[in-house]
Nucleic acid binder design. Sequence first.
DNA 1: TTTTGTGCAAATTCTTTGCAGACAC
DNA 2: GTGTCTGCAAAGAATTTGCACAAAA
Lengths: 146, 146
Amino acid sequence: MMIEPELRYQTMLDTLQKNGGRLTSHRLALIHLLSVSEDHPNAMMLYQKLREQFPTISLATVYKTLTLLKKEGQVLEIDLHTESHYDGNKPYPHPHLICTNCHKIIDGDEIKSLKNLSAELEETFLFEATQYQLVIFGLCRECKPE
Amino acid sequence: MMIEPELRYQTMLDTLQKNGGRLTSHRLALIHLLSVSEDHPNAMMLYQKLREQFPTISLATVYKTLTLLKKEGQVLEIDLHTESHYDGNKPYPHPHLICTNCHKIIDGDEIKSLKNLSAELEETFLFEATQYQLVIFGLCRECKPE
DNA sequence: TTTTGTGCAAATTCTTTGCAGACAC
DNA sequence: GTGTCTGCAAAGAATTTGCACAAAA
């Protein structure tokens, strides 16, 4: 479930502008694409999609813009084994469920089991958690037998 | 806390041999190093350490052996942003706490908050979890102010 | 006009691969 | 002896960087 793509689009744009960034057509398109993407695309997927509308856009520009948006806290980078995927809808840390069969990436916020995690880390390990990355592999409801 | 390095050493060796792998001096040394390493080394760290004793060892051999041990379930690969670290002591999935100040990697098994995770995923998302990767960033007890 | 963004190609970094010679069994 | 392992160098893949040109403000 994606929360208000238009609001995300505006917020990303506003943040970029507020920080003195320029609103080029390529950036507008990438930000828009991020705001409506539910499938956690990687840089190549974004690049290929954008190229349909902007045949001259370069992969480097996609990366540079993603780096900028990450720094502004407007995009979450999901580190997978050899590549990164990006979430522009929920730019805050949250779990992801990855189906090992169909390779879908499902948002797993709302997980109650994690609610107490940072308090427990503080208590048990005296560890002050600021960020986390949780990727869970398995079979999604469509790929699960029966 | 590391659990019985000698046992791990023997188990890794036995598994390798059982699967028809050859016990070369380089492999013995790497497996031994993994069994006594508490600091979750990466391939380069292992390579540099091994080179003190075996100046001719190559990084490729380190990678090839790690790949083999991973396939045999004797080493856990920890995916970090641009590189992998390895755990030969606890080759099963478990959380890691990474200090953003001193870059220490702390084992975080024993976390109670996760005990119910896979049952909850099954219930809430109909997702059948088989594996996970959890990395938590923050400040360790030594680096935390006061 | 001035500063920032862009495309291109080259560079980086981690990891894998191909192959001829070396070694375990 | 035979099949596997090794080192080397080259290849791969994702990402970053340098630079001259282009475009936003």
